[in-house]
Amino acid sequence: MMTRVATYGGSRSTLANIQRSFVRLDRAQEQVVTGKRVNRVSDNPTDGVSSVINRTLLKRLEQYERNATEADAWLLANDSALADSATSLISARSRLVQVGGAPDAVARKAIADELRATAETMIGTANATKAGRQIFSGTADVATAYALDGSYLGNATPVTIPVFDSIAIRVDRMGPEVFGVYDAGDPSAGNIFQQLRWMADEIEAGNVAVAASGLGTIDHALERLATAQVELGTRHAQLESIQANIAGSKVSTTAAISKNEDVDAAEAIMNWRTRQSAYESALKVSAQTMQQSLLDFIR
């Protein structure tokens, strides 16, 4: 129990208390002004570090989002190229059906020319690009996936894009998978471009029997295209659900960061008000008591 208080010591400890009150007010003000509960890690090491980790996660999710957009663009480019190829093949198929009516040489030449044109159109489609890059050539850096003679110039490495932790989606179809494998020796057993040209040659030469087996060949090619499209569709569906996941994770991570770092505005302002009135009353009381001494009362 302290029995006496020195005037100097009393005002010094009053000052120290006012200062401590002011520091608390200042901290509350910092929270209100910055809107942050954790302005440095030492404010709250646990929340601070988890906030740092969450910020990294958020960046990663934003990257996944960009990767998914990229994957989406790939799938779309593939899909439209495949659809175009299928359209071309269906028109070629209807030409072949006409061969059944035993056409004359002029008509046969017209059909053959049309088949050749289809082959060329399809090669053009197979050389489709996405942002200047061939989409059917794997990871090879080539100007075109297919040469004019229908031979494949790409490689056999698939293009995969990671779109989430440990999920990578394959976004391409390689030429040989979609259009068949090139066969330099036997064009009838080669890819669809070779086959169309071979059929054109045979029909022009009068071998109309080819048309019958050709229908099967084209149907087979259409089936390959359809399979590829179904597969792309499946991946697209998968990608969409992953994109939804990413968006959801982004929201929850952002919320976690905000929960760690941000102040509850109402609470912060109330804290600040409380501390401000504490500070003001400290000032008022000190001003009153420090003024007074026995001197005020004697004589």
């Binding site: 302290m2 006496r4 020195a6 005037t7 100097y8 010094r12 400890s13 001494s293 026995l294 001197l295």
Partner: peptide, 24 residues
């Protein structure tokens, strides 16, 4: 530190009220 300092000045420091009383 502030507490011990206050204790110290409570012994050694000047209290104006006390001095006024002594003065009277």
């Amino acid at each position: 530190a502030q507490q011990t300092e206050t204790q110290r000045t409570s012994v050694a420091g000047v209290n104006v009220d006390e001095e006024m009383t002594n003065l009277m």
